[in-house]
Design a protein around this nucleic acid. Structure first.
Lengths: 252, 252
DNA sequence: CGACACCTTGAAGAGGTTCAAGAAATGTGG
DNA sequence: CCACATTTCTTGAACCTCTTCAAGGTGTCG
């Protein structure tokens, strides 16, 4: 099942220095020399098919992963069968940081579409971090960003009503996609209503109904998973807070 | 207002090596030599009176703080006046990690009782981290622990009903206090019903009512902020998940 | 001792859940 | 490539948990 398809490093040119995500991923702000050294940090790549797990709760922690292509969700499970989606991750984003503290992962990372990740062994990261202050600082920022993102999710879950939650979710998604060169007003959702609802602390029926309400209000168009945002201001207005508060994206 | 009461480092013996929290705080697992060097990491201490802020959203980030005595809450604010309590921190725990990513803090840290913290300038931490792999790893674990804790809060906010949330909150609090040598069955709450409610995504009236229900069921005794847990199993039973899932505490 | 913040409890109401049914899309195997 | 099974999505209606509004009680601090 979990056949690890490690790629030959040379033949597939696994290199941050030539990756078109280098502005979004780990290497941000590194010098050319540092960037060259960084390439040695990638142990290889791995393809994960839709529905398969990159890692799951309890797996021993060895590496963090940079998403090259595709889309993931992370979820925590409880022994009594409940689960909570803790985030959706797209290309250029890093997953796996949850595993550091216990040397085992504490959540599952599941591909929502066929995906590919760069494998970055964590000892190697720590090693290089001791050498390069820039990389060290960058790793710290990535972890801090995750903490700040989580604060934003708590705000959504603790303070907002259904329509505000969904508006915040959509705005956040579109913003992150826009930073990657995609449309500011269109999204193809990679997750089901159920997964959205679980993430936002509501039932799938409520998600569906709220989408329908947005359509009635002329704010969006919905065709299954294809969402067109017709009135961005109205969507922002539902939050009445700057759209940055729950941004999982690279700020600096 | 924000008069920074830096203490003389020598006169007050600001030293991890002689701190009675060293088993819970930063120095965990360091050798004696490392521990000696670590002392140089503490730039001093600061006292924060009840109600005052250690740092607030927008403050420039210079240091993280180890709580020596007292109790804090962290909260994020939105421009439209809403706020969300993102955590309660007690002695031996670290606050301030939210500031790394933007070089400015993204939340407020407010003392819920007269408190004292150790100031640990972050450049100094990064410097020493490059030297000591043990410290480096430890910093990474602290940040990862915060991420895992936040996942637990998301689970509470996204999946649980009022009574489950409050039970989880109480269990978590008591557990962390127990690890610090306090009673396993008694707590003096340092926060108001309103703050508990805000943290748990419910109204203060619901918190109050749920406490009353627990009392009726013989699970706890309540005298204002003094809580006695009479039936730990019943409290755990309300969760039906191991009590570790939302633990903000030092696992390893 | 009085002012203020905090807590409790009741009653009415709203937002969201749950249950149910049907429609649409997707995937599978022949 | 089509037919069938399965998953996903939408919508309705009843119900329930939690919120909101209100009032009174309790504790605390100057």
């Amino acid at each position: 099942m979990q056949q690890e398809e490690y790629m030959d490093q040379k033949s597939l040119k696994v290199a941050c220095s030539s990756c078109n995500l280098r502005e979004l991923c780990l290497p941000v702000g590194l010098s050319n020399e540092e960037l060259g050294r960084l390439d040695s940090l990638i142990a290889g790549r791995r393809r994960i098919k839709r529905g398969e797990t990159l890692y799951k709760s309890g797996d021993s922690f060895t590496a963090i992963y940079a998403i090259r292509t595709g889309f993931f969700k992370t979820e925590v499970n409880t022994p009594d069968g409940r689960e909570q989606v803790t985030g959706f991750q797209m290309m250029g984003e890093i997953v796996g940081l949850d595993g550091i503290v216990q040397d085992h992962h504490s959540c599952n990372a599941i591909a929502l579409e066929d995906s590919e990740v760069c494998i970055m062994p964590f000892d190697r990261i720590e090693e290089l971090s001791r050498e390069f202050g820039t990389l060290q600082r960058h790793i710290h920022k990535i972890m801090s960003r995750e903490i700040v993102r989580d604060q934003g999710v708590m705000l959504i879950l603790g303070n907002m009503r259904a329509d505000e939650r969904l508006a915040a979710f959509l705005m956040n998604l579109v913003q992150r996609l826009h930073a990657r060169g995609f449309s500011q007003s269109e999204v193809i959702l990679r997750m089901t209503r159920k997964e959205i609802g679980n993430y936002l602390g509501m039932q799938l029926e409520t998600v569906s109904r709220t989408f329908s309400k947005f359509v009635d209000d002329g704010i969006i168009e919905v065709n299954q998973r294809h969402i067109v945002i017709k009135d961005t201001d109205a969507l922002k207005g539902l939050l009445s807070v700057p759209t940055s508060f729950s941004c999982s994206d690279q700020p600096q």
